[in-house]
Design a protein around this nucleic acid. Structure first.
Lengths: 204, 204, 204, 204
DNA sequence: AATGAATGAGAGTTCATTCAT
DNA sequence: TATGAATGAACTCTCATTCAT
């Protein structure tokens, strides 16, 4: 019967979530044991159940932790009135930074959420869809404003941005040396301009 | 003692690999049981061991099966003398098609190979690196030929292509309705031209 | 995936049920471990699950095994056309003999069935009610035939018979030396001369 | 270090015993957790250990509480100089009333005492034997006085009385609606007229 | 070529118990 | 007097693996 309101408890629980995130990211949900998680946290296996009702609940908490505020940050970006280019870069920055800050939780969300029971996956799906739709909105805006080509398929574009960010996110998690700002820069450039040679001077 | 050379044996073993691929893709390596795999193949659990020494060997075979000829195909593409644009599109086509043809094996390679012991991962890493390097080579050629901007980071570019293909590959595996050629088209366009408005007429 | 139809399997499973009955009777359901049961059967703990899906299923099988044919035997008694006295004695004989033959299974049914989930308890309750009703029927018949006093509450009478048999059944299970036929005799005498109109000599 | 002498402590401890009795009666000893008991008492799990050294001690106290004064009451009955019929009825009344007053403790004594270590069971066995012997004495007296048939096996008779009372006791605990005085009446009648030489009218 | 049966290691989970506060 | 936190042992159950047939 944990004292859910106590500060100490909340603090320790957060710690447990981070530990679970780290272990799940490294070995996958089924490949991780509760003993692994407890050990990383510095407690004994049985004690973990003071903070989680089950291993599955731990996964749920990690997934939520992984996306929640990066989704909220997206709201801020989408509702701002910057030009398209700025919004895109902000999105990429936010997305890739999440991989650094929150460490492995976002990766766990991407790779392991399918092991959650439907009811718990529902909230995550809502958040994920919300994110993608906001991003699609940004692209639609960009098309209207003339910043983007008419022919752009905004759904495809949003998925592509998410996909490319997640791919680099994986690499970022695996290799902490990577220069995240360099990657943000290059991703933005790729998405805006592609790889082909076309000189700025020709732009009008 | 399996009759490794018998046709029937080889045929059944291939079947076992495909079954394992399907199950691993759906539930992950640790989430799958040998019973699951055997059942999908229509044999009994214990009989699997006639075809694999262990569950891990099965994973190894699936991973290899998942990448080997898609890597070889890349050699063909890289060594050809088509222009950059054609090679890029060929690469994307090859990559995404693999997800359809080989079904789930490529996905398994991407998501589960980390559960293999170092020795087995070595060969896969070689193949993967070879693939990425070939792709980098294509980009370097593109830069030299003037098709691509000088400023392109070829390593980044290759990773980006792989990342975007894998991201869409996941979606393709999950949703068999997706129009793969439409996606190929749009990916190529994105990578070549980006999303920004700049009309071909303005090029010259 | 047990071969449910094989003779060997059925035989071993019966053995498992008997072992479970013995252990449950001695230590109660929650006080018994699956290890205890397996050990009594001469196999290892994990192997028990080849015969039962769960410990609870084992309990269910034991309970069913404990009452099923003693309930059926009651049907034979109730439907016969012997006089009341003979039917009562037959009932007691059948009931107490069950404790000897089936060993501890009937005791387990009485003491531990409440740990079964509602769905499984349903069938048992049906059988139990059927038994009690048959017994009540015998008493009603006895009243009609004039063998018993009018004032007898047949529901009370049936419960009393069952209660007294179970009480002695417990003692019989605990002490294998007890002379079961002596007890049958005395129980019958107690109950008979309690419910009878008057003593046989005085009847005519 | 409990203040064993404080009134408050003794009062709370009694409360703890009653809570334990209720929980043990409902779920059995092994099926009950210390958390269950604490919750019913309105304290936290760990606090129980202020009143009991162990869960087992709690069981011991409950069992003792369950029989002690019902055994002492039997002494009063046995040593009185009422006729047999009155003593029998008093016994039954005392026994069945215990199930109502003490609620579940007597049931716990009957069903769960076997989980106590030998040393603790010893005192209970003494009390139980004492009870049975007193009851046997009543029967022997009854035989001598001519109220009962010569052929009565007094040991059997005492066991039968206890058995029938416990059987009805179980039903009484389970169904608080049951009319306890009706049952006392009927049990007495059953037993009396069963063991009596003959019906009163026919006696002279 | 395949399987029924068994195994043993390890998983997640529960819980009586302890103890500093 | 009571509790939050932690522990470790035991438990049920799963599963990769083996092997005689």
């Amino acid at each position: 019967m944990p004292q859910i309101n106590s500060d100490r408890y909340q603090q320790q629980r957060k710690q447990a979530i981070r530990s679970a995130a780290a272990v799940f990211a490294e070995k996958g949900f089924h490949g991780s044991s509760t003993k692994d998680i407890a050990e990383r946290m510095g407690i004994k296996q049985g004690s973990l159940y003071y903070y989680f009702k089950s291993k599955e609940e731990a996964l749920g908490e990690v997934c939520l932790f992984g996306i929640e505020d990066y989704v909220h940050r997206m709201d801020g970006i989408a509702n701002g009135d910057q030009p398209f280019e700025a919004k895109l870069m902000a999105t990429i920055t936010s997305h890739l930074s999440s991989y650094r800050e929150k460490n492995e939780a976002l990766k766990v969300h991407n790779d392991e959420r399918l092991y959650l029971p439907e009811e718990k996956r529902y909230r995550l799906r809502q958040l994920g869809s919300h994110y993608r739709q906001s991003l699609e909105g940004i692209f639609e805006e960009g098309v209207k404003s003339g910043a983007l080509r008419d022919s752009i398929d905004c759904h495809f574009a949003a998925q592509a941005v998410i996909g490319i960010c997640n791919a680099w996110g994986d690499l970022i998690v695996r290799d902490p040396q990577l220069d995240i700002f360099d990657i943000i820069q290059k991703c933005t450039d790729l998405l805006l301009n592609g790889f082909c040679e076309r000189r700025k001077e020709k732009r009008t």
